[in-house]
């Protein structure tokens, strides 16, 4: 049996409030807050990107795992904001973490699902015993176009999970994946901002895949919502994961801990992985956890996880998600936000 031997997360320290963005575009902040359930989101510094976030999360994961990084046989990063169009993020992160050079590296992309994708493949490689340890990371610094709904939610952050076969902090009980070709949200090569299909991103995209994946997972594992202590869903905004949870039969309490989006925003490939990290920060041994991601395009990966006795011992070795969400942070004006997110045209 394989599972998670170490985990870590990182959220940048800059924030911008929905209010500040709304004011810019003449929108009523109260409407935004009510409609999307978004208060504020994280903003990456000019010196932060998917690679730096992955290194921070990866370092925490290694601390918690307590393993020699050279024993990591594979490292995968899923993101839709890899810093290079061609040249892997994984190699930079691998060198920074002290892994390799005998290591398999690949970058993944599947909109917001790329993180759980990396985790799924890392898990499979360890289960097959082809490698001893494998890392799956989901991290993003996605862009939202000015005066678009996504500008309120697109944020930055990520989480890393090291999979192994011994000294597990979390057992992976089962997995279920569901994908179809559904063009609800995309970005063409060379374009700066993504595009989306408005209301088409709801029912036919997010809900169809999240619900099918979660239901498929429950059926395959023979479990009911009430068997779980926690459930984490992909969080494009505050409302969607709440609605999905409710439809499936989960309570607000079950979803609460992983529901980070109102103060973190949507960290895309980092979204449900960071939600999972927040759950692991407080889960009790024996707790069953459902993780269901969503990536536009579209697909959803589900995992049934179980916290072990070892988890409480190791989690204090690195910062918790709440310590980063509530810790030292700086609120930006829209002008500073635009400067950091390179939405300003400057002379090169």
């Amino acid at each position: 049996m394989a599972g998670i031997v170490g985990y870590g997360a990182y959220i940048p320290r800059n924030r911008i409030k929905s209010e500040e963005i709304a004011r810019q575009w003449g929108k009523d902040p109260a409407v935004i807050r009510r409609g999307l359930l978004l208060e504020e989101k994280s903003v990456p510094g000019f010196d932060e990107d998917t690679i730096t976030i992955s290194v921070a999360a990866g370092r925490s994961a290694i601390e918690r795992a307590g393993i020699d990084p050279t024993r990591i046989g594979a490292l995968y990063i899923g993101s839709e904001s890899h810093p290079y169009a061609v040249k892997p993020s994984g190699t930079v992160v691998a060198e920074a973490l002290g892994t390799g050079p005998e290591i398999h590296i690949a970058d993944f992309e599947f909109a917001c699902k790329a993180g759980t994708e990396a985790m799924f493949v890392a898990l499979g490689l360890v289960e097959s015993e082809r490698v001893e340890y494998a890392v799956g990371i989901g991290a993003d610094t996605s862009q939202g176009a000015p005066d678009d709904a996504l500008e309120f939610s697109a944020s930055a952050g990520g989480a890393a999970f090291i999979f192994g076969r011994e000294n597990l902090l979390v057992d992976v009980v089962d997995t279920y994946c569901y994908s179809t070709d559904t063009a609800d949200f995309w970005r063409r090569e060379g374009e700066f901002y993504p595009r989306h299909g408005g209301r088409f991103t709801g029912e036919p995209a997010y809900f169809k895949h999240v619900l099918s994946s979660a239901r498929g997972m429950l059926e395959k594992s023979g479990l009911k919502p009430s068997d779980f202590r926690h459930a984490v869903f992909h969080m494009p905004n505050g409302k969607f994961p709440q609605a999905a949870g409710k439809t499936l039969g989960f309570t607000k309490e079950q979803i609460e801990t992983g529901w980070l989006v109102p103060f973190m925003g949507n960290t895309y490939s980092g979204s449900s992985p960071t939600g999972l990290a927040a759950v692991l920060d407080i889960a009790d041994p024996g707790d069953l956890i459902l993780l269901t991601s969503f990536g536009s395009g579209a697909g959803s990966d589900s995992f049934v996880l179980k916290a072990t006795d070892l988890l409480p011992e190791r989690r204090d070795r690195a910062p918790t998600v709440q310590s980063m969400l509530q810790g030292p942070r700086r609120y930006l004006t829209y002008g500073e936000y635009v400067k950091y997110r390179e939405k300003l045209i400057v002379n090169d």
Partner: peptide, 10 residues
């Protein structure tokens, strides 16, 4: 902390 120190132009 590990950060992006510089970009070589565009």
């Amino acid at each position: 902390e590990f950060r992006l120190l510089r970009r070589e132009g565009l």
